[in-house]
């Protein structure tokens, strides 16, 4: 197992920032009073002149970052997902998106991972919002190895980007030898009965679900998707054509999320196969631990198993 899995994801993020900032003088880091939560204090120690704490003013942080980017800097701005996105959405759309400024916006604690911060801090809509900004790249690594391998690719990509991160340790998905391309989804479990597409915290649940399904004679292929936009259409379409049924799993609202995008992709390409979705309904968040929230919002391994069984049953009925 990779040693990276012993680290929290925020540590991997900050270690990468520091590592690459030694060579890449463009990198600057902006915070809105969550340095101590996201862990960028280590960056501040290493590069005090390249760190700006904007105070609790996310809209201004995004604008300042855009101004820095217009001068050639590569700003990373971070906050919790709702404050990094919906709080300052017009600033992102106009000052970053419309002006084509290369700003990297990092949102941590996505969806139910806000846990005990509760409903005010839970964004179930951030992926939908950010994919709506033209040219915005939207990424969510599922584990620390994935983030570590994506980081240099993120630096090379000169488009604005939203990066959805967890802060704490993540269940291991990849080992050090994994090949991870920013714009390609990865098949992490092979199978031909149906496809499970999962992102973020849903990947390890999807892998666990695939094992449970195997015991029932259903060989699920699991695709770990880390880039929502641009979507890796090729991998998704191939898997769906080859397996004939699909379940999409996301820690996000069903409305406007990955499942909606995959459904549209399949329809547009005449891949008319049974599809089910695991995600969050039309509701707000609430306080609780991850396991509790996953249960009440139907994001558990068992929810994936049930949705997979439904899709598979429909596939068999259609044959």
């Amino acid at each position: 197992m990779s040693e990276l899995h012993n680290k929290e994801m925020r540590q991997v993020y900050v270690d990468n920032l520091i590592k690459y900032s030694k060579l890449d003088r463009r990198i600057v880091v902006l915070e809105a009073d969550l340095m101590n939560c996201i862990g960028t204090g280590k960056f501040k120690e290493a590069f005090p002149r390249r760190f700006i704490n904007c105070g609790i003013a996310e809209s201004n942080m995004i604008g300042v970052a855009a101004g820095l980017a217009s001068c050639g800097k590569l700003p990373f701005c971070s906050s919790f997902t709702p404050f990094a996105t919906r709080r300052c959405y017009d600033q992102i759309a106009v000052s970053v998106g419309y002006t084509k400024q290369n700003v990297k916006i990092v949102g941590t604690d996505p969806g139910i991972m806000a846990q005990v911060n509760g409903g005010t801090h839970m964004s179930f809509e951030d992926v939908a919002l950010m994919t709506q900004v033209p040219d915005m790249i939207v990424v969510e690594p599922c584990d620390c190895v994935c983030l570590d391998k994506l980081f240099p690719q993120i630096l090379k990509c000169d488009k604005p980007m939203y990066i959805r991160l967890q802060r704490k340790k993540t269940p291991p998905i990849y080992d050090d030898n994994a090949k991870i391309d920013l714009f390609k989804a990865n098949t992490v479990v092979d199978g031909d009965s149906l496809t499970i597409i999962a992102c973020g915290i849903m990947v390890h649940r999807a892998i666990a679900a695939s094992m449970a399904l195997k015991n029932q004679g259903i060989n699920a292929r699991v695709i770990a998707l880390h880039t929502y936009k641009p979507l890796d259409s090729e991998t998704i379409l191939n898997a769906c054509r080859e397996t004939g049924a699909v379940v999409v799993c996301e820690n996000h609202h069903l409305i406007g999320g990955l499942g909606s995008e995959v459904a549209a992709l399949l329809m547009q390409n005449d891949v008319l196969i049974p599809m089910t979705r695991v995600g969050i309904g039309d509701r707000y968040g609430e306080v609780g631990k991850e396991a509790y929230l996953a249960e009440i919002m139907h994001l558990t391994e068992q929810d994936i198993v049930e949705k997979a069984q439904q899709a598979y049953k429909r596939k068999l009925a259609n044959i």
């Binding site: 604008g63 300042v64 855009a66 101004g67 820095l68 217009s70 050639g72 600033q91 000052s95």
Partner: peptide
């Protein structure tokens, strides 16, 4: 800098001023 959605240009300008100092 592009502006029109009011209040945004000044933030970008502050970013430019910080850039000069950096």
């Amino acid at each position: 800098f592009t502006a029109g959605s009011l209040g945004q240009g000044i933030s970008a300008a502050v970013g430019m001023a910080i850039n000069a100092i950096m």
